[in-house]
């Protein structure tokens, strides 16, 4: 017996469990040729409206579905179901974010191979979702024109974990004297090289450009798959 305290080297990633599930999901999506996009934003940034518009338009040419995380209600799933795309609600209860295992569970019974795009709407929160890999191929961070141009500077971690920024509610830009150049500069400050789209789910402005981007990415992700469908 030794009474001397001593250090044991360990080196264990605390989120290893989540990362293992996320990696398996990503591999599954890759082998099935499904391109997976997750959406994160603060509550009220317009994720659901933007996603509803995306699903409605993309459904015309692609097989799309969505998973939507919410603390308590199924309201978002009901709204998204209006697009006629398959939608499943993940009720997180008190949990402020989605984890990979929840995605895995929610996909139970779904034939992923039948999908070109799967969208995952995270719980409205700009802090916690940044830590959790969901196995997605692309993470979008949304911010609306009403939130203030300095949002990227206030939440650099989530902007850093995302691949693309989407500025929503552009139809209100003039009314709130939104300064797009300033937001662009702030996005570039926390995530140099990050691409952004400025959209309005209400008018459809900017959505085509965004959808073109997604379909280009699908073609890279699953070349055979898309060639067969063309």
């Amino acid at each position: 017996m030794s009474a001397e305290p001593r250090l044991l080297e360990v080196r264990k990633n605390v989120l290893k469990q989540n990362d293992v599930v996320a990696r398996a999901l990503r591999e599954r999506f890759r082998s099935q040729g499904t391109f997976v996009v997750s959406l994160v934003s603060s509550p009220g940034a317009g994720k659901t409206a933007f996603l509803e518009k995306t699903l409605t338009l993309m459904r015309q040419n692609y097989r799309v579905a969505a998973l939507v995380g919410d603390l308590a209600t199924e309201n978002d799933a009901i709204r998204l179901a209006r697009s006629q795309a398959p939608v499943k609600q993940i009720t997180t209860g008190t949990l402020c974010h989605l984890e990979a295992v929840m995605i895995d569970r929610a996909l139970d019974g779904w034939d992923i191979g039948q999908l070109d795009f799967l969208f995952i709407e995270n719980v409205g929160n700009l802090v916690c979702p940044s830590s959790y890999d969901l196995g997605e191929n692309l993470r979008l961070v949304l911010l609306s024109v009403t939130e203030g141009e300095d949002k990227p500077l206030k939440y650099p971690t989530i902007f850093n974990s995302a691949d693309i920024a989407v500025i929503t509610k552009m139809d209100l830009a003039e009314a709130v004297e939104f300064d797009e150049e300033s937001v662009k500069a702030n996005i570039q400050a926390v995530r140099p090289g990050m691409r952004h789209f400025a959209v309005s789910a209400k008018t459809g402005g900017g959505i085509q450009e965004y959808m073109q981007f997604l379909t280009d990415r699908l073609a890279e992700h699953a070349p055979k798959h898309t060639a067969a469908r063309a």
């Binding site: 017996m1 030794s2 009474a3 305290p5 001593r6 250090l7 044991l8 080297e9 360990v10 080196r11 264990k12 990633n13 605390v14 989120l15 830590s131």
Partner: peptide, 14 residues
């Protein structure tokens, strides 16, 4: 990083 780097251990049960 979010990594457990080491554990400080007291008595060892041998």
């Amino acid at each position: 990083e979010l990594v457990i780097s080491a554990l400080e251990v007291g008595d060892e049960r041998r």
